[in-house]
Design a protein around this nucleic acid. Structure first.
Lengths: 124, 124
DNA sequence: CAGAATCCCTTAGGATACTG
DNA sequence: CAGTATCCTAAGGGATTCTG
């Protein structure tokens, strides 16, 4: 595990950035998306993400758990099972993510056009 | 400048992440927030941000410009002046950012409570 | 099964110095 | 004023190996 991951003395970023600092890492959104349809166990989650390493997934889940976005439920069978469930707080992010997704979809062509213009100006 | 910054062969991330990969860096949202009230020149922008280095600000502005979120207007005086203006595409992000900000403000207490619980469980 | 520990490489971004 | 050019460090995250 990364040292200092659970430091309690973290500096408070500007409030607009608080969410993003914690949620906008490489996998969080995809994890949330996967859990929105129902609880999943660790390896099921890992398979549904495709590309994530178990170290990164663990790290992502710990952060989401710490922030109250997902809940980790240990089922004491043998071998052990762990289910991850989205919390109400996590669910409250759904509309936000949908808005982001909508914006992305509708604006993508315009963004790509802008990129082409920019790159063209640079090339000459 | 960072090598590969303007690569045209960038891989396309999952669409939900496209926006975030480009906008959720350390300074973009704050830059957008500052420019929403009106155009600003480079150093004015730098002062209004407080803490950003000029290298990071330049990098942030170039990316926003490339994605069509801000426009860079050179005013050929002496010494040279440069104004940064938000584009209509950039403005279309405003409601999104407000939503993020709202979520952050209303959910912050709950997030912090979750963090305390998590850290407490860990400590023992 | 669900991780923890370790190694390693890449990148973001701060500090600093210089320029048209 | 508005950058560019370097150097440098810290953190993210992939790959791999080990364990209760």
């Amino acid at each position: 595990m990364l040292p200092g991951m659970f430091d309690k003395t973290e500096d408070r970023p500007a409030s607009s950035r608080l969410l993003l600092d914690q949620i906008a890492d490489k996998w969080s959104i995809l994890v949330l998306g996967a859990l929105c349809t129902g609880p999943l166990r660790f390896n099921a989650l890992k398979r549904s993400l495709d590309g994530v390493t178990q170290a990164s997934l663990t790290q992502t889940l710990r952060r989401l758990e710490r922030n109250g976005i997902v809940e980790r439920m240990v089922i004491s069978t043998s071998p052990i099972a762990v289910e991850y469930v989205i919390t109400p707080l996590g669910r409250s992010l759904e509309p936000l993510f949908h808005s982001i997704d909508d914006w992305t979809r509708t604006s993508l062509p315009e963004v790509e056009a802008a990129r082409r213009r920019f790159d063209e100006r640079r090339r000459t």
